[in-house]
Design a protein around this nucleic acid. Structure first.
Lengths: 246, 246
DNA sequence: CGATGTCTTGAGTCCCGTCAATGCACGTGG
DNA sequence: CCACGTGCATTGACGGGACTCAAGACATCG
């Protein structure tokens, strides 16, 4: 299934990890030099083109991966086609469903992405015998759970304008460490890895409502929209007020 | 803080676990006899009265626990008081935030509940040195994450009637193993551990909409409502159709 | 330069939230 | 025992916020 992805790893390079940008942030950080060599032999580096799906909801969960570069989304949908994005992952994040039979959601590349890809069965076995790796995966999963639950408050209880404001603040924080090597300060200007429809699918809105709310905020001078993919936050305090920050 | 909870453990009983109903389902199942004795010494059994809050959002995450009996809810709220229930836990489920500084949500007893309570720091230390326990906690957390993400689809994309139908089916499945020792078959008649407002807070609706939808379903003969806390599913296939099961 | 996909804007509708009154069960005390 | 208060739940009337449907604008690319 994944055989047609281009192999990015150069076979002359014995340790692709040494040049890895996310080595110290991903779950691999728990491994020492020797373990890492063993681990890397189980997987391979692949590049996924924008828009390509890597895992399917309900299919066998055959793969897991670390995101090295790019952005991907996790989605589910109802039988009649309504979609909901249930997560967006960035470099150093982990994807796939360890210790599970089937994938609980679709995984699709939002931008061209580089991954460190493993078969789930090999990963599971390795993880079970390296408890530091499991520990790190546990912490990551607990963080993801917190994030998902916080998002449930947004989906269930916030208005369209609050949703948009919260989304912009959230993404400005999450993009901070990646696009520029800017430190942890949130960005005031960034390029969305998502189109309008995808923003709608994250927030539980329609594309028209997203568009209208963004135009509204542009009109009141809270943000600027230099082009359709770029957002500039002009008045962060006002945006935070709109988001009803908890 | 938790000093005023009644101690349920009888000091003459050296192994409260031997009589524990959830011993083989909770994370403790990963421990052998010796480990379990060591583990139990770190914690204590407590009983929480209905309505009592055990953890507060944003407060220091000082406690973790296994639920032995009863039901509890996890909630968050906006600064202006809108509430969202982000999880409901039943016997054998785990609560609290290991390896974290602060609790990400409130935890409140829906019914009188018995817990196996631990200080987080002691639990963290014990878990770090017992990787089977951590493994089991990891699996549980991954399951919870799947569940939370599935709920995001409901919150973001489903209509009021679909929400109610999905909720009823979900709770009939989750109550099955506990109320009666009935096996895994979902119940067709059960007592809600939640009031109307709490159902609304789970589904991202208002109490009035919940009430109207339930009355509607009662009117069409899909369910019966013998009293305000009891639900009887009369026509499960039709209820499943209403839920737009994925 | 069309062709196509994406986004914006407008007009109209409807679902669900809001406000308000009523109903029902339960407990307390006169 | 009934009167009364309290806390939930139900039901109705109404309005508004977000969805739906439908053009039109804009960008990108062959």
């Amino acid at each position: 299934m994944a055989e047609n992805f281009s192999r990015a790893g150069n076979s002359a390079d014995t340790t692709p990890c040494s040049a890895c940008a996310v080595r110290d942030h991903a779950i691999c950080a728990s491994l020492d030099c020797h373990e890492r060599k063993e681990f890397i032999r189980l997987g391979r580096q692949v590049t996924i083109p924008k828009g390509q799906m890597l895992m399917w909801e309900g299919e066998e969960a055959a793969l897991v991966a670390n995101v090295v570069e790019g952005a991907m989304m996790l989605t589910t949908s109802t039988s009649d086609g309504r979609e909901q994005i249930v997560g967006v992952v960035y470099p150093s994040d982990f994807i796939g469903r360890p210790f599970g039979k089937e994938s609980p959601h679709n995984v699709t590349a939002l931008t061209e992405s580089r991954l460190c890809l493993f078969s789930r069965s090999a990963f599971d076995k390795f993880a079970r015998s390296h408890s530091d790796l499991e520990h790190r995966l546990l912490r990551r999963t607990l963080d993801e759970l917190d994030r998902a639950r916080k998002w449930m408050l947004l989906l269930g209880r916030k208005s369209a304008s609050e949703k948009i404001a919260t989304f912009l603040l959230d993404i400005s924080r999450r993009l901070a460490r990646k696009d520029d090597q800017d430190g942890p300060a949130p960005l005031d200007r960034f390029i969305l890895p998502l189109g309008r429809q995808q923003i709608a699918d994250i927030l539980g809105l329609t594309i028209e409502t997203v568009s209208r709310q963004l135009s509204e905020m542009k009109g009141t001078g809270v943000i600027a929209l230099p082009d359709r993919r770029t957002v500039e936050i002009l008045d962060r305090p006002r945006l935070e007020a709109l988001a009803e920050q908890a």
